[in-house]
């Protein structure tokens, strides 16, 4: 792969990575959200593969493969299971309406650009230049988790944050060490599992209500 081509590819994956995050804010149907998240997992895998090719390291390839399996395979599969348990899960009343949250998304991307300046300044390479994309996805995940009412939307918000952090890790450093990556991935998979189980318990305890109605505990 020539340098220029791999740079193009990397930029392409980063662009689509951000685009899928915006798409998650845009759509309300849970099945569409899961599809977008799968696509985002694939883009992340793409970024990891491009960087692994550039570094020519077997370890990086292994990480990329693992990320692909986890983010585009296991996690969406678990989310589909959540969706089966909680039918008719559709984001009906987000705290911030969709148009406003899309505008906010653009604003958050600006913030991410400002926040990522030190990371970009560190190494003036193409991949480092793309780190604001990762931080933007983290912020979008934050926004989603904070403004959406459905349990599954919040899970997706958490996953967006995680994808964003993983993207920053790849773009800024070429990936964290294998041992750390393994631990992080295991933690993520377990966290989604826990959230899946809790979602069904919430559903049993509260019925198909919004999380906004979780008001048993307060001062």
């Amino acid at each position: 792969m020539s340098d220029q081509f791999s740079e193009q590819l990397l930029n392409l994956f980063c662009g689509l990575f951000l685009l899928t995050a915006v798409g998650v804010l845009w759509r309300r149907e849970v099945s569409a959200l899961i599809t977008l998240l799968t696509a985002q997992g694939l883009m992340l895998t793409g970024i990891a593969v491009v960087l692994a090719t550039r570094h020519r390291s077997a370890e990086a390839f292994a990480i990329a493969l693992g990320i692909g399996l986890l983010k585009a395979g296991v996690v969406p599969w678990m989310l589909r299971r959540v969706r089966r348990q909680v039918p008719a899960a559709r984001e009906t009343r987000p705290l911030v309406n969709v148009s406003a949250s899309l505008i906010a998304a653009a604003g958050l991307t600006l913030v991410a650009y400002a926040a990522a300046k030190p990371l970009v300044a560190l190494a003036p390479s193409a991949s480092a230049h793309a780190t604001p994309v990762g931080i933007a996805v983290v912020l979008l995940g934050f926004f989603l988790a904070a403004t959406r009412q459905r349990a599954i939307s919040q899970i997706i918000g958490v996953l967006l944050i995680d994808n964003g952090v993983a993207a920053v890790a790849f773009l800024a450093t070429g990936g964290v060490p294998l041992i750390v990556e393994l631990g992080v991935s295991a933690d993520l998979a377990l966290a989604v599992l826990v959230l899946q189980i809790l979602t069904s318990r919430l559903h049993q305890a509260f019925g198909p209500t919004d999380l906004d109605e979780l008001r048993e505990l307060r001062d």
């Binding site: 915006v22 969709v98 600006l110 230049h129």
Partner: peptide, 16 residues
């Protein structure tokens, strides 16, 4: 949504 995409495009052109 399309406006946000356009704004992101402008941002991406400066970021990337």
């Amino acid at each position: 949504g399309s406006f946000a995409l356009a704004l992101l495009a402008v941002l991406a052109s400066t970021i990337l």
